[in-house]
């Protein structure tokens, strides 16, 4: 019975996908130009964002980015579900030998600069290469360094979950604000400013900061879970 329900759902999905694809005029000459010119000109002239990739990822294809962040969240959750044998009963951190004092004091100096670099990368996501995902990953590497160096350095799991949830919720709220004020999800609702300014591109900068926090929290959670895996 279940099989037939799945087959029926797949058939319905396939029908609608087919009808969407039939709407696209594949092979016709105007399709050869594609949407690239529209994206490039509108990211520069309408959104005033100098990094066209960011404009596409966060604004024109913002819904996909929300999906990506959700996939990351789900994989982090599944990973901690697999690795935690019993919840709140985490094993010892597997460590061969303690880090030397040079590494200890060096890590203390490196950690703020790594975090600063990560924050710089995700704040300037709409101006330079990089963005929320990259900046979040850089911040997570800083935490990895601290976790590897200091045996008793710990990250509050509740705080990570809190940061992650608030960032995700604000992302959706900004998207809904676009829906209610401008008519489509994740539409820009803020003034766009000048090209190449830090405060340009409307909601794009804010969304990338949120994505950065969310990715950083998720990756730190994954790293923490792996380091505390019970043997």
């Amino acid at each position: 019975m279940k099989k037939y329900i799945v087959l029926g759902l797949l058939a319905v999905l396939g029908y609608y996908l087919m009808s969407i694809f039939l709407l696209v005029d594949f092979g016709l000459p105007h399709f050869a130009h594609g949407v690239k010119d529209v994206y490039l000109s509108s990211s520069k002239n309408i959104l005033k964002v100098s990094n066209a990739v960011t404009a596409i990822v966060v604004n024109f294809r913002g819904f996909d980015t929300l999906g990506e962040v959700t996939v990351l969240f789900l994989s982090a959750t599944a990973m901690s579900g697999i690795l935690y044998k019993k919840r709140h009963d985490i094993g010892e951190r597997s460590i061969l030998f303690p880090a030397s004092s040079i590494i200890r004091s060096g890590a203390k100096m490196l950690f703020p600069s790594i975090t600063l670099l990560g924050i710089y990368v995700f704040i300037h996501g709409h101006l330079s290469p990089g963005g929320g995902f990259q900046g979040g990953t850089i911040i997570a590497t800083g935490f990895l360094l601290m976790l590897l160096t200091y045996q008793n350095y710990s990250v509050s799991h509740n705080r990570l979950v809190w940061v992650e949830s608030v960032a995700g919720m604000l992302f959706v709220i900004i998207g809904l604000a676009g829906y209610f004020m401008k008519g489509s999800f994740l539409e820009n609702v803020l003034p766009v400013g000048e090209l190449n300014d830090l405060f340009s591109g409307g909601v794009i900068g804010i969304i990338y900061v949120l994505v950065g926090f969310k990715v950083a929290a998720e990756l730190i959670g994954i790293i923490y879970t792996i380091l505390h895996e019970k043997g």
Binding site: A99, S100, I103, M109, L110
Partner: peptide, 20 residues
């Protein structure tokens, strides 16, 4: 400055790990 203190640090960590 960043390279000046991060590069020797990483090489020290690797050499110490190899030694251990």
């Amino acid at each position: 400055v960043f390279i000046g203190y991060s590069n020797p640090l990483s090489s020290h960590a690797m050499a110490r790990a190899m030694f251990k």
